[in-house]
Design a protein around this nucleic acid. Structure first.
Lengths: 199, 199
DNA sequence: ACAGCGGGAGAACGATCGTTCTCCACCGCA
DNA sequence: TGCGGTGGAGAACGATCGTTCTCCCGCTGT
């Protein structure tokens, strides 16, 4: 956090940005992007339209900021679970424990990248690129975890891709069907795939 | 096809409805639902707004018709592939061959149920219900195919759920990342899960 | 105390959308 | 030839949205 000469004023601006990001993330998650008006974000965040547009010059800028922040939050959440794993197998499976706790949140309505790609991926290359980056990041992280095993690199990459399919499928399926045990099903399947690879 | 006293007139109406459904499905797939105006559907289909609103009294009625038709088309496509399988294992894996050919279509931009749920599932219970029905249908069909094996029913249901996760994950991942071998990765993972179950 | 300015509330603006309405050309039938 | 009625093209309407502007309050430095 950087302060300029008028320190507290700067902090207020930063707090306003965070409130805007939180409100927008919540509303986008609940209703999608296009169904949420800037006025609703203003009301939910308590930040005036003038400051809102000072921080994010357009709605698509705000959306991009929300997605980038969500990317960081999700990655950090994954790392929190992965860190508790004793060996590579446990660390990979911990990703699915992260999913289980995420799906159990009352506000869970799916992965914002999958949802926003579905809504705007066809009309916004920015949205498509951020979603692509996020999903490639998950797959890459799984590959990194598997690189710690004695699996050949190519086999690790292939297994990581399959585990990412399970994770993404669990996100979409849990959102749509609401089935409460989706993450556990995915974790069980992931365990079988790890077994088959000898991990 | 039912004809009334003014036979050909009735056929024109039916042809118009099909043109509207085709145009709407294409545009919704390309751009999402809310970004497509009724005027664009009118232009793409060549059916006047008056007849369009005679057939579908509102945009959400049209969306529901598009989704129901897509459900039938997808199910029929799956059956076409499944029918070629010699044994239950081959029939289950044929579902992933269906995915491979689907993903290779130039207009592929993901599963319309996943996409539309992401866009409107939070604001339209109808959309959420149709998406849920479609996804439960896929899972149920997989369970039926596995019921033909000597797997215990509970194990078949669990395996079907895991295979459905792979299929849905492949749809979302192929759409977002554009990776061309996504369906093959999912098929390989499905094969390993079938191996583990002894199918 | 007072000029100046940053910020808040919300009106205003232009565009777009879903839906309806108007107007007119065309067709079957007497 | 005249007539009723169906359907097409597109204007019209009311609502909503993203974005900007106006007006005014309250603070700040002298």
């Amino acid at each position: 956090m950087v302060l300029n000469a008028r320190g507290d004023r700067e902090m207020d601006t930063e707090a306003a940005e965070i409130r805007v990001l939180d409100a927008a993330a919540t509303l986008f998650n609940e209703r999608g992007v296009q169904a949420v008006g800037m006025d609703a974000i203003r009301t939910a965040s308590g930040v005036s339209l003038k400051r809102l547009y000072q921080a994010y010059p357009s709605k698509s800028d705000l959306l991009e900021a929300v997605l980038r922040r969500r990317d960081e939050v999700v990655n950090a959440g994954v790392e929190r679970y992965v860190a508790g794993g004793a060996d590579p197998r446990a660390r990979v499976l911990a990703v699915f424990d992260f999913l289980a706790d995420w799906f159990a949140e009352p506000a869970f309505r799916g992965c914002v990248f999958i949802n926003t790609y579905g809504e705007m991926g066809g009309i916004s290359e920015n949205v498509a690129a951020v979603a692509r980056g996020h999903k490639l990041g998950l797959r890459t992280r799984l590959a990194e975890l598997l690189a710690e095993t004695d699996l050949p690199p190519a086999a690790g990459e292939a297994l990581a891709a399959q585990l990412a399919l399970l994770a993404n499928g669990a996100m979409a399926t849990a959102a749509i069907t609401g089935a409460r045990d989706t993450a556990q099903q995915a974790k069980a399947a992931a365990g079988l795939l790890l077994d088959a690879a000898g991990v």
